[in-house]
């Protein structure tokens, strides 16, 4: 679906990503995880062309990302960031429908699509005409998700989408998100630093450290066949979450 080959990135002399290759399989959820500054967000931003790699290539469905095709490729991707990244001057409806309206969709078509999406994301319909600051954090993320899904994209990219939410809301939204991913069978890349979240969502988990991929595999592979002492160390640092998870479903 999407492939990074030998990409690197240096910001002001600090290497954020060493030569890295990664393939994102279709219709599955890939989780990029690692400590702060490990390059996971940079890697995600390369996939949607917000960061241009210094070397290497990014290929989306056999098309290499280049200035000429970025806009059309972005329109086939959905992108959600922490806090939602909603535009404060637009209502929930305006935010979710912004690109569609730019592309010339009729108001009715937008409204119909929004109806499907509010149902899918469990967003209260009466909240559509509210402005972002009138919504709760969880509602904002649901609007952001609707905005990302508006054009029914081939792929969803989520950069710590639940990072700013309090635990209860986060729990609900995790459940909802997973259900949505499965129902739509979308290709998903999700960035998090929370191992519990990673194992909850990820078919494939990509653990990064200092701009390199340390290990790539399923939760079990990371747990039972760590490629590097750092893998166990990272997982151990979040033992409490995993403990409870293992307690429920070993």
């Amino acid at each position: 679906m999407l492939e990074l080959v030998g990409v690197t990135k240096t910001f002001d002399g600090n290497t954020a990503v060493h030569p890295t290759s990664l393939e994102i399989p279709a219709a599955a959820t890939t989780v990029l995880i690692g400590p702060s500054g490990c390059g996971k967000s940079t890697l995600l931003r390369m996939m949607i062309g917000l960061v241009r790699p210094d070397a290497g290539s990014v290929t989306f469905e056999d098309e290499s990302l280049a200035p000429g095709n970025l806009i059309s490729i972005r329109q086939r991707l959905g992108y959600v960031i922490q806090d939602g990244g909603l535009f404060p001057h637009l209502t929930a409806r305006g935010n979710a429908g912004l690109l569609a309206s730019y592309l010339g969709w009729s108001n009715q078509r937008i409204a119909e699509r929004l109806e499907e999406l509010t149902e899918l994301t469990h967003f209260p319909g009466h909240g559509l005409d509210r402005f972002p600051h009138e919504l709760s954090g969880g509602e904002r993320q649901r609007v952001s998700l609707m905005r990302a899904l508006m054009l029914d994209p081939d792929m969803l990219l989520l950069d710590e989408p639940l990072g700013a939410l309090d635990p209860m809301i986060r729990y609900d939204l995790q459940t909802d998100l997973k259900e949505i991913f499965e129902r739509l069978a979308k290709t998903v890349v999700l960035v998090t630093h929370d191992m519990g979240e990673a194992s909850f969502f990820g078919h494939q988990i990509v653990l990064m450290r200092s701009g390199r991929i340390v290990q790539q595999g399923t939760v079990n592979e990371l747990l039972h066949a760590p490629a590097d002492p750092f893998v166990s160390q990272f997982i151990n640092a979040q033992r409490t979450v995993l403990d409870s998870r293992n307690g429920v479903s070993p």
């Binding site: 972005r74 329109q75 991707l77 992108y79 960031i81 535009f87 690109l99």
Partner: peptide
């Protein structure tokens, strides 16, 4: 983050200016 959101959405520069940045 908002500027990036507008870019990531796939809006061309002119549309970003008129629909997001100037407002």
């Amino acid at each position: 983050s908002l500027r990036d959101s507008a870019i990531a959405l796939g809006l061309p520069a002119k549309a970003r200016l008129w629909r997001v940045e100037l407002p």
